[in-house]
């Protein structure tokens, strides 16, 4: 089973709130010094799911990302984890795009890669939290699309996915090729083994531009425009409840809740 995994490089989502800063004029996050961007968490889950399917059924795993040259590091990590190949889409005209731009560029790149049975994406990226790209890929490529997926099984000629719904899950049978947006419940991503890290250092990563993908005509221009990015503080002063014994603390807290008419 040949699998394509779409990957995004994002600012580290674990930057503590006190160090999280944005440049309002540029509409961008200013990462604290020394904190490198990382592979989007759900994309790492998708890659892990792809590697497990490859281990069970054979095939190739190709990682694709749209980003600047710095996104190479994330692709190298994908190769180190076990991806067989990686492709970087890098073009100034595609970099400042929206979900439409990204899905369009990824779809063209996926078509250029060629043979594939399954496209796995993270359910959403931890920077924009939009969750549109996997569904957009399905629309552009005309493929069945399932989101969010917490388990994947290969069946005879098709695939069975477990889709999370509000009060449980649906088991969905889909024809291949198909697109799936993976959620974290599918399993923790592996750490790259040392052998993989050495291999990744030697792997050539081709760079495709908008022209390579036939998108130098502006057809992937964004539909949505960022107007403002800002931090809204909702912090409030916390009243700490204390006492000499746990019983005293508990009684004092219960009393506070009673006074606030919460119990």
């Amino acid at each position: 089973m040949n699998i394509i995994v779409t990957i995004k490089q994002v600012p580290d989502p674990d930057i503590p709130p006190i160090h999280f800063k944005v440049d309002e004029a540029a509409g961008k996050v200013v990462p604290p010094p020394g904190v490198a961007p990382v592979m989007n968490g759900y994309d790492a889950n998708a890659l892990e799911a792809a590697l497990k399917l490859k281990e069970a059924h054979g095939g190739r795993v190709t990682a694709i990302t749209l980003g600047g040259q710095e996104a190479r590091d994330t692709l190298k990590r994908a190769v180190a984890m076990g991806a067989d190949a990686a492709v970087l889409i890098d073009d100034p005209n595609l970099r400042e795009g929206d979900s439409f731009t990204t899905a369009t560029a990824l779809a063209r790149a996926i078509e250029k890669v060629g043979e594939y049975d399954l496209i796995l994406c993270g359910r959403q990226a931890s920077d924009t939290d939009a969750g549109q790209v996997p569904l957009g890929l399905g629309e552009i490529l005309g493929l069945p699309t399932i989101s969010p997926v917490i388990a994947i099984e290969s069946t005879n000629g098709g695939v069975k996915a477990h889709r999370m719904i509000e009060d449980g899950q649906q088991v969905i049978e889909a024809q291949l090729p198909a697109v799936m947006a993976v959620s974290s419940e599918i399993g923790e991503p592996r750490y790259p083994p040392l052998r993989g890290i050495m291999m990744a250092g030697r792997t050539q990563i081709p760079v495709w531009t908008a022209a390579d993908l036939g998108l130098d005509d502006g057809s992937a221009a964004p539909k949505v425009q960022l107007r403002r990015l800002y931090i809204e503080s909702r912090e409030q002063a916390c009243e700490l409840v204390d006492g000499d014994t746990p019983e005293e603390i508990a009684a004092a807290l219960a009393q506070k809740l009673r006074e606030a008419k919460l119990i």
Partner: peptide, 19 residues
Amino acid sequence: VMTKPVYGGSANAEFTVPR
């Protein structure tokens, strides 16, 4: 003008669909 939390809720973004 559409406001949504981004970066896990660390920031808010305002978006428009101009055309």
